[in-house]
Amino acid sequence: MKKFNFENFLAIKYISSKKEEKLISLSSLLSIISIAIGVGALILVLGIMNGFDKMLESKIIGANPHIIIKNFDGTFNLDRKLLGKIKSDKMVANVYPSLVEQCIVSANGQSSGSILNGVDFSDKPYVEKYIKGRTNGIVLGKELMKAIGVSAGQNVRVTLAYSNPTAMGFSPVSFEVPVTGVFDSGMYEYDLAFSYIPLDVLWKNMQTYDQINTIAVNLYNPYNINKVGSFLGKILPSQYYFVTWAQMNKNFFTALKLEKIAMGIILLLIIIVAAFDIMNSLTMLVMEKVKDIAILVSLGATSKNIKSIFIKQGLILGFIGTIIGDFLGLSLGYILKHYDIVSLPKQVYYITKIPVDITLTYVVGISIVSVGLCVLASLYPASKASRMNIIEVLRQ
Rank of each mutant, 00 (worst) to 15 (best):
D53N: 07
L360G: 06
E128W: 09
S185K: 03
I306W: 11
S331I: 11
E259V: 10
Y188V: 03
G153C: 04
Y240G: 01
V342W: 10
Y188C: 01
L315C: 14
V364P: 02
D184L: 13
S111F: 05
F4S: 11
N94T: 13
Y130I: 10
Y126H: 04
L379V: 09
N71L: 05
A167D: 04
G186H: 03
I366V: 05
F121M: 10
I104P: 05
I86V: 07
I261C: 08
V177K: 02
K289Y: 03
P165T: 10
V39P: 13
Y130D: 07
K2H: 08
K54R: 07
K312W: 00
A107S: 06
Q247L: 10
S17V: 05
K337Q: 15
K337I: 08
M145T: 00
F4T: 12
G40N: 09
R387M: 13
I270K: 08
F183I: 01
M263G: 05
T322F: 12
M55Y: 04
G333Y: 11
K289V: 03
N117L: 15
I225H: 10
T208H: 04
Y209M: 02
G318D: 11
L99S: 07
I60P: 05
I351K: 00
Y209C: 02
T322P: 14
K227V: 09
M263W: 03
G51I: 01
V342L: 11
M388N: 15
G40W: 13
I32M: 15
I215P: 11
I215S: 09
M168C: 02
I68N: 08
F121T: 08
G325R: 08
S378N: 04
S114W: 03
A11C: 03
K260G: 04
K234M: 10
T214H: 14
S122Y: 13
G62R: 00
N64M: 01
Y188W: 00
S367D: 07
I271P: 06
G47L: 01
M263N: 01
E392D: 15
T75M: 00
K142V: 01
I225N: 05
Q110M: 10
